[in-house]
Amino acid sequence: MSGHNYMKLAFASRSENEAFARITVAAFVTQLDPTMEQLDEIKTVVSEAVTNAIIHGYNGSEQGTVTVEAIIDGDTLSLTISDEGGGIEDVELARQPLYTSKPELERSGMGFTIMENFMDAFEVETSQGAGTKLRMKKRIESKKALFN
């Protein structure tokens, strides 16, 4: 599988859409013929990013819009997950393992650590009051290529 493909998804910042987003991205990525493990990683990463947008970006408000874009270029998946919420005050602090700005909600503080671990590249673009954009990349070595 090679070539170029693209998808874009926009949905309300409601928690039931977390499953919708990760399943949709996983379905799109199957054309790269990923392993179960890679697919699990991608689903987890999408879930983390969308959950962050809902809980932190929009502070639980269901009035916001979360946008997920996925690009397949050759064997590389690029994901962009963005919100137009409050933005992250201190990105370095947010990236610390186990740090959470909302301990009262039983957040584990592992979202960023998981995304950084499961993807090959990870970037945060955030602006107070304007929103947050997460850009990530992952190379999917095709099972077919490994067998040949």
Partner: peptide
């Protein structure tokens, strides 16, 4: 079948 960091939070709690 699936769990993310929200699951870690609820288990830890």
């Amino acid at each position: 079948q699936f769990m993310d960091s929200s699951g870690l939070g609820v288990i830890l709690g």
